[in-house]
Write a protein that binds this DNA or RNA. Structure first.
Lengths: 356, 356
DNA sequence: GATGTCATTGTTAGCGCTCACAGCACAGAT
DNA sequence: ATCTGTGCTGTGAGCGCTAACAATGACATC
């Protein structure tokens, strides 16, 4: 009801009513209307009521542009997201928007098709043109984040999964820890070593998961097989699976250490593809090969078999990034001081890794 | 580089440079600067170059609030999305944002937790407070859309999958056609009838898919089994699967028409759950039961077995909704005249329905 | 030489709002 | 009686920009 078109009035034809219109109807000055709207204490109750009534009657809404012009605050945050069709970025965006709204900010989003420095720069240009007060960059891609550091923007920036190397504030899940959890779980259930299907090497998350996997194997003193590389898609996991299928021990017994008996896959979608390839090769999971994924997408629990995986709390990531951004905003520091929030992932054990 | 903080200058300390600052540096009036920025033809080339240089030097960016104030155009569109973690809404949002950007608009998104009229109204309030020029509502929920019709907002609104009943412009995929394609495909490969696991009854898409399924069966003159109801989640599909598993013919031969031999599931995630339940019940897909889903999520091709499903072109939906919104904006019609765009879905046949 | 036309530039007046400050009434203190 | 404070309200300026109009000079036309 508050947004009904003005039902009444001698308001200038066609145009939305202004504060002056409200003031006239209420018989006060525009400034008093402003005070009512911004909950200034020094307004008599009867006056306040009068103004409220006039506002309702005219269907008045404060003009955000005029307000932003004079306050120099747009109360808008920008988000640059890579592919929001992926579960992770989408969930992050979701949590982020809610947190921003709670803080009184609006979120404007721009999505990236290509992960180049130029595309990122254009996206940020677009956002700054609209006067955002700060931005969250959900582009866990090496080249893009490097470009970001060069830019030295005149407003705060927070990256999500943007690596640790740069002096930019950021939020991330401890990917390395997640990889260690998965890998040592697989070692723990009796596998001699663990193979790995990695994500694209220019993604931070992929790199961190490789590192976590590798160091776990090294610390356990077992052989580190060469990692395969995918691109996060089920198809690439499928291809990796076809390749790996040839190396699974023919019988059910585990023979040499070169045999594949356990695979840690860098995300759930690729794990799905991998499992299809194994199924087609007549290999049983977890009977002949154990598998663990990463992300815990909602489908993972219902895969055949249900997938052991590492759960990331994306909503928390979104919230944390808004908190970080807003605190920078309020402290007025554009100093890019590189504060970091790290969120711990959790291993979810399911049948794909448990030789029941 | 265009957004480097002003590197130079006698600009008023701390503040971003204004048009007047640029004008002074370039030795012209602020109006000439404005003309250069808006590509007005009547500016001498040398002057234009002078101004450009001053802009670069100061790192000037036009203040969007001031501009919006005087032009009465925020060039911002609002989107109200339900759960953007779902593949459909996320993809739509993705396509929509890109289309909006191409048209020169910014997109601000608000997400909904609960699908109530109140939540929708709050979301829209939030958007109008920020001065959006129009909104796209991706909330295919009966109550929410009904509330939307009541509101009669002072700006154009486009719904995505908002049903046909209301006089609001909208874009949708022909859900009924999709359901018919899937159902008649299942009948076509020899099943006596087709069971159905529906989505929540208060979602338009769920209802349309039920209708398409039912009418296809009726036209074929076969019995219409009672539909089961899920909530789009894999878990609810799993539960439906457990229920249905008991009714699958014990042997491999098809006996009575009450036996379940084919199921059309209202989305892919539930189909995944259903297949898990069948697997656990020792039933083979497609051997004993054929299954078809809806959406064609990226994972569907890699399910066990790969899932026959109905593909929706979500990107096209997003684009179409922006086109519709922008055309309303340009024609100045807030008339909610209920123009509708319908996009055809496509059946993707995979192994889950083909008794190879 | 007067006139009109055109390209180019400058001047002025707001857009709708908030901020700083000024009033004014009335309370209590001096 | 004057001074000071405090609660409420109004006035004026100005945020940075665009739109409308005015002004200028160059050049062609009559």
């Amino acid at each position: 009801m508050s947004h009904t078109a003005q039902s009444d009035g001698h308001a200038r034809r066609g145009r939305a009513p202004t504060m002056a219109d409200v003031a006239q109807v209420a018989g006060v000055s525009h400034q008093t209307v402003s005070r009512v709207l911004s909950h200034h204490p020094n307004v008599r109750d009867t006056t306040r009521a009068e103004v409220q009534r006039a506002i309702e009657q005219l269907g008045y809404r404060r003009n955000s542009s005029a307000r932003a012009l004079v306050t120099r605050r747009t109360l808008t945050l920008g988000v640059v997201a890579c592919n929001p069709t992926l579960f992770g970025p989408a969930s992050t965006l979701f949590g982020l928007e809610e947190a921003a709204r709670d803080e009184g900010y609006m979120v404007s989003a721009v999505t990236l098709r290509r992960y180049t420095a130029k595309a990122l720069e254009e996206a940020i240009d677009h956002l700054s043109d609209w006067g955002v007060e700060g931005i969250v960059v959900i582009v866990p891609h090496r080249e893009a984040v490097a470009a970001l550091a060069e830019l030295r923007l005149p407003f705060p920036v927070v990256t999500v999964e943007g690596g640790h190397s740069l002096p930019i504030a950021g939020v991330s899940v401890d990917q390395e820890l997640g990889a260690r959890l998965a890998t040592s779980h697989l070692l723990g259930v009796g596998h001699r070593t663990v193979w790995h299907v990695a994500g694209p090497p220019d993604w931070f998350e992929a790199e961190a998961r490789v590192n976590g996997w590798r160091s776990t194997l090294e610390e356990a003193g077992v052989e580190v097989p060469p990692p395969l590389v995918g691109d996060w898609t089920p198809l690439s996991g499928y291809r990796a699976g076809q390749e790996l299928a040839g190396r699974v021990a023919a019988g059910s017994a585990r023979r040499t250490s070169a045999d594949v008996t356990a695979v840690f896959v860098a995300n759930d979608q690729m794990a799905l593809g991998l499992m299809r390839a194994f199924r087609e090769a007549g290999l049983s999971v977890p009977g002949q090969v154990a598998i663990a994924g990463f992300d815990d997408i909602p489908e993972a629990e219902f895969f055949a078999p249900p997938l052991t995986t590492v759960r990331q709390d994306f909503a928390a990531v979104g919230q944390a990034s808004i908190r970080l951004l807003v605190s920078q905003l309020e402290s007025g520091s554009t100093s890019h001081d590189g504060e970091r929030v790290v969120i711990e992932p959790r291993l979810i054990v399911r049948r794909s890794s448990t030789s029941s």
